[in-house]
Design a protein around this nucleic acid. Structure first.
Lengths: 333, 333
DNA sequence: CTGAAAGCGCTTACAG
DNA sequence: CTGAAAGCGCTTACAG
């Protein structure tokens, strides 16, 4: 049995489809016969009528749909963001479609293409490496776009990110103030502004404290081999001289914790740990981890707010918004 | 500037929209003038034409879209499932829409309603408590539906689940064989078949080994207060007499590990641990956790396969498929 | 080899 | 107070 359409209701009620449409959308209520309206509504309920959004969208040229393109939906940071964005969009009458680019620019491109064909009203994107031109092409089609998490330099585009440089600077300073002098940093071998800024914050902190910057202590991991390369790096680090590790991502920290939990090292006395972002694992490690907590809620909410403003009201000025992270003190320093 | 439509291309090429449609869809290639076809394709590329899927869907009455309704997208088990299902659906030319019901039947109902209005072609659902009638209503609209993870008793519906009863029986037997006799089980205060079957497996194992079933050792947690109630339960359990804990969900285990990592108890000597499902946290605990690994990949793939079969080929027989889990031996027993 | 026309399920300006 | 008609962007059976 086919789904009921407005036409079925019209026939059954002996009225025109226009009238059915008006009644079901509560339009011109004041000049439609109350009896007729009531009858139409009853028949609609009886037939379990559900408006076909596809048809509505074709007419209105609006799908009330927003695409969220993340780099990796399996990352707990990302899934938290997705959760909040979903709440926000649905509160505002939009539906969220989620795509995961798996840190792959080609997949990002395909997703954008797919979502455009499906006529999404706007995009919230956490760009991947080397995706500048893809994003640029999208923006040129006049599609509303807001970037989160990962800024792109020198691009006229709305973005909402955290203070990656400053908070990393503060975190490393915190380590220094606790007497740590041989601080290694783990990051990804990736051309991403947010990661680069975190490393720069680290460097600046050392420099300002006149600590020698040993390039061997800046460890760049190949993302696809996170686990094995982190293991190897820890093996090769001289843990007798290294007294602190700073991780620019929770995935890196998790990999390191797996390794460290097999070693006999006193934390934080012999080795202090600080990481970006959170994970359930951090509370279960020998000592709870000191970590940098991004204002996920603020970032996510603002992204939705800004995007919907842009959708409903073109020609707004570009905004680059920065919300500050905070350092959550655990017992690993 | 508006997006280019088939009509724009037709005008620019001086042909009919029908011809444009045929060319872009590679239909009747053998009887369309090669030159004309080439010209049309060039103009389409030049105008950056992207077919409007909304219009296509209205015509074809098919959206090539599948809804996945999970209970909690933040659960690592769920996000893994979502990831694999997404891969499978996109491989087969479908797009996945994800909705999270947050274990709330009212929200599940709203999501179903929303997705139906958006004309999804089918549903994969992990039902929440008390959602039998909601699911039933959906099935009665002839919508293709496949259940995963959580079976519903006495319902004619396709489902793909794991052997909850048997694997729990085996896991508890494993504890018993290791000499454990005072085994407590943690589960949720929820009317869900999968959880009930896990508890039944536990009971049967004790019974078959003629171990007295102490009802105080069956601990039902209120999900919204998982952390605090698990803490309280562990405080109240006599850990001198209890020698093993069995968790029916990873969330329960995580909550317990947080508590246990603050206590001075030898694991597994004084207390053994086994849990359902996985978490990054399990590798980082003092000892890696022995846990039950569900065949997520098999379940997810089959769910997509079955659903698409049902979409493209109505009147298939109902299938209730069970895939076996396995016990992953860690060092917590 | 190509085009005119109907129709998918809606909305809405207009006429009466 | 109500309805006929156009149109959103496509596809496709049919005619020529």
């Amino acid at each position: 049995m086919k789904r009921a359409s407005i036409k079925d209701i019209a026939e059954k009620a002996g009225v025109s489809i226009a009238l059915v449409s008006y009644v079901l959308n509560d339009k011109f209520v004041n000049r439609i016969n109350k009896e007729t309206a009531k009858k139409i509504k009853e028949i609609a309920a009886e037939l379990n009528y559900k408006p076909n959004k596809i048809a509505q969208s074709l007419k209105s040229n609006k799908t009330n749909t927003i695409a969220l393109l993340v780099a990796d939906i399996a990352n707990p940071f990302t899934s938290q963001v997705a959760r909040i964005i979903e709440d926000e969009t649905s509160k505002r009458g939009y539906m969220l479609l989620i795509g995961s680019s798996d840190e792959n620019e080609e997949k990002l491109k395909q997703l954008i293409d797919l979502f455009q064909k499906r006529q999404v009203d706007g995009f919230i994107i956490a760009p991947v490496e080397n995706s500048e031109s893809i994003i640029n092409n999208l923006v040129e089609t006049k599609a509303p776009v807001v970037l989160i998490d990962r800024p792109i330099d020198n691009m006229e585009i709305d973005s909402i990110v955290t203070n990656n440089f400053e908070i990393s600077y503060q975190a490393v300073n915190y380590l220094i103030n606790k007497g740590k002098k041989n601080i290694a940093i783990f990051s990804y071998k990736k051309n991403l502004e947010n990661l680069k800024n975190r490393v720069e914050g680290y460097k600046k902190a050392l420099k300002d404290s006149k600590i020698y910057l040993d390039s061997e202590k800046i460890i760049y991991i190949e993302e696809s081999k996170t686990q094995s390369e982190v293991y190897k790096a820890i093996d090769e680090l001289n843990l007798m001289t290294t007294d602190a590790l700073f991780f620019t991502s929770n995935k890196l920290a998790i990999a390191a914790l797996k390794k460290l939990s097999t070693l006999d090292i006193k934390i934080p006395e012999e080795l202090a740990l600080v990481t970006f972002d959170e994970s359930e694992a951090f509370d279960i490690f020998r000592v709870p981890l000191t970590h940098i907590k991004q204002p996920i809620k603020k970032i996510s909410k603002k992204a939705v707010e800004l995007l919907i403003e842009k959708i409903e009201n073109t020609n707004l000025l570009q905004q680059q918004i920065v919300y500050n992270s905070e350092i959550i003190i655990g017992k690993s320093v």
